[in-house]
Design a protein around this nucleic acid. Sequence first.
DNA 1: TAGATTGTTAATCGATTAACAATC
DNA 2: TAGATTGTTAATCGATTAACAATC
Lengths: 230, 230
Amino acid sequence: MSSNPKPEPATVKLAPKAVVGRVCLYLRQLELLHGQGEITISSAELGAPLSIKNAQVRKDLAYFGQFGHPGIGYQIDDLIGALRHVLGVDHEWPLALVGFGNLGRALLGYHGFRSRGFKIVAIFDADPAKIGRKLDRLVIEPLESLLQVVAARQITLALLCVPAEVAQSVADRLVAAGIVGIFNFAPTPIHLPEHVSLIGVDLGAQLENLAYKVEKSRELAPGASQASSY
Amino acid sequence: MSSNPKPEPATVKLAPKAVVGRVCLYLRQLELLHGQGEITISSAELGAPLSIKNAQVRKDLAYFGQFGHPGIGYQIDDLIGALRHVLGVDHEWPLALVGFGNLGRALLGYHGFRSRGFKIVAIFDADPAKIGRKLDRLVIEPLESLLQVVAARQITLALLCVPAEVAQSVADRLVAAGIVGIFNFAPTPIHLPEHVSLIGVDLGAQLENLAYKVEKSRELAPGASQASSY
DNA sequence: TAGATTGTTAATCGATTAACAATC
DNA sequence: TAGATTGTTAATCGATTAACAATC
């Protein structure tokens, strides 16, 4: 433990969503660079491949502390450690996968989760025909077991991949079982109590956004659009 | 040669990303209400289930025209038609599915696309073991066929579900084949020429966002977080 | 008319960018 | 020291919210 300036003088400034989103990208980029043997990096170099300006990078990082060295830049391994801690990905997260349809099946095998400490430790489905099926080391369980399994395996987060019609009611049951964060893939908004966090991705809506962009750039003229990177 | 530095003086206000995102939600909500036999709706009623304020709803819609009637509200079927046109979902969009791994397989069966006029009409993969396999009415084809198939089936959009390492190079080939919009699922930013539109969803990064929220609300106190709806 | 609700303007709020003294 | 780069403040930009005359 070093001589840290001021740990937290009641300044619980929770970072804006946009900032957190970008910090995730910085972390991934940093890990890539670390793997390539890089030692330090400047805000400009870090932002460039992500199309993010140097001032933005510095401001984002400054939300969480002072990590840089004037004239030098950022120590990559130190920054990786700091950002992992900030984002809460410096430890494992046991996940429940709820709804084992097409999308649920894909998420079970999705590498982007596992590589970040997110580990699916339970699968639930309402369909009696699916219950009992074995996958990997897991068995598909009925929603009736939610309460017991969530407690036993200390599950905190859930991937919700059920049909839109039942998304809200299943979400309610997840909350009742003690889940504190839900990643909603159902194409419908759901409402949760204040203490439960929520992220939603509506793939259909996203694709409509893309259609709009294309339609619009066609209108504007053959060859004028705004490019962007994600 | 082209004598237009600025094509349209007044009316080419391309709506901000956030506005388009919300309009997609309005459209879905309106279709739901239409199915329930509702005829008219006010901005307040439309926004409520989405946790969006009435002023915001009116402002968003006003980007695209005047659809409402003072004292009455909006005619649901008229508004649906208008928004579909604005978003470009009043006609079919032939899609290419590129990369037939876990996620690609899930997207092939994903109902949220088909119900909006998005229709997968070609599947590509680089793996010789997969090429030739039949699914639904489609055959998995090699990337070498891209140019020919995209032209023949008039494909404009692509779902990119390949590993991060090859995402950029495959995207380049898609662009070369004439694709004008890419939905990138690979967990890496890609860069495209100006005339090609891009939407990216990084599921791993999203899950990290959720982890951050949970971590943060734990710090703040047991029972204080910001709820939101998607 | 009285009540409801729009589209739009003005006020507020937040996020991005630029600029620069401080630091290595 | 000279050059590089930080963290932070100030300026700019954009998005959300409130307020209200106009309209049905």
